[in-house]
């Protein structure tokens, strides 16, 4: 039953992929052989269009380029020409740092808020106020105070990925069953051991859910942040290729961003599975 379900869904996925590629292919073909362009417009859109080739690449162009990228992912020919592997590496590094710092801050703080109703109420207005702020709104402030574009990007990742983890940790910690805390109390378990061996395992599934939401946000934000701060990273790569009018590379970047984002999400889904316990 499950195997046939898997097989059927995989078949449908493959069909959709083929259909999309086919439509894409035909659509870009027809532009190439379409009616002659208005010369004024042709001048505007540039050489690629006037030479009869579509500015919009087809799947075969993208595929060829992708193979080229993947065979030399780490070349470095100066600031505006680096392999896609290097660019994505920079983005992952920044996300790892900003997100890592957010984890280090959110989990202990979340414990504090979850365990103390007073702190929960005291900090709630700040959380509610800061949580809805768009990450990009932080950028000027970060650039002004930190004065380093790469660190500013890390700060923005930090500030936007902290909230879901903070809120989920606090919620998970606050909803530990009283029974289990009573077990710890009757066994005279100390505060630290109680935190690690009773509260943390109970709250872990909720915490990891928060971490999963956060990594998604962090990955969304890094592209935008790198477009703004420039220099390196996949966001900068997209921006740079747009300036080069290389739509092929932009499409490849989109694919790569999607794949990495999916991998990050799946990694945390694995963690979530590992810490979930059946009741």
């Amino acid at each position: 039953m499950t195997t046939s379900l898997n097989a059927r869904s995989a078949a449908i996925s493959a069909l959709i992929a083929i259909a999309v590629l086919l439509v894409w292919h035909l659509a870009t073909q027809s532009t190439a052989s379409g009616p002659a362009l208005d010369p004024e417009y042709a001048k505007l859109v540039g050489a690629t269009a006037t030479t009869g080739k579509s500015a919009m690449p087809g799947p075969l162009d993208v595929g060829a380029k992708l193979i080229e990228h993947l065979s030399h992912p780490f070349y470095d020919k100066g600031p505006n020409d680096k392999g896609i592997g290097i660019q994505i590496g920079w983005s992952i590094l920044r996300v790892a740092m900003g997100y890592g710092l957010a984890v280090l801050a959110a989990i202990p703080l979340g414990f504090l808020i979850g365990m103390s109703p007073v702190m929960s109420r005291a900090l709630n207005p700040f959380i509610q106020l800061l949580k809805p702020v768009s990450p990009l709104a932080w950028m000027p402030l970060a650039l002004y105070t930190i004065k380093d574009s790469s660190k500013s990007a890390i700060f923005v990742i930090f500030i936007c990925s902290i909230w879901p983890m903070l809120i989920n940790t606090a919620f998970g910690v606050a909803s530990v069953r009283k029974e289990w805390l009573n077990v710890a109390r009757t066994l005279e378990v100390g505060a630290l051991r109680r935190a690690f061996s009773v509260i943390l395992p109970t709250a872990a599934p909720t915490i990891v859910t928060g971490m999963r939401i956060s990594i998604g946000i962090a990955w969304l934000v890094i592209v935008a942040a790198e477009m703004l701060v420039g220099g390196t990273g996949i966001g900068y790569f997209v921006w740079n290729e747009w300036n080069n009018l290389s739509i092929t590379n932009v499409i490849i970047a989109i694919l790569v961003i999607g794949v990495v984002g999916m991998a990050l999400d799946q990694a945390l889904a694995r963690v979530a599975q590992a810490v979930t316990f059946p009741e």
Binding site: W180, N182, V183
Partner: peptide, 9 residues
């Protein structure tokens, strides 16, 4: 405890 209160993990 009435509800056994075992740690499920």
């Amino acid at each position: 405890f009435q509800g056994h209160a075992l740690l499920p993990w």
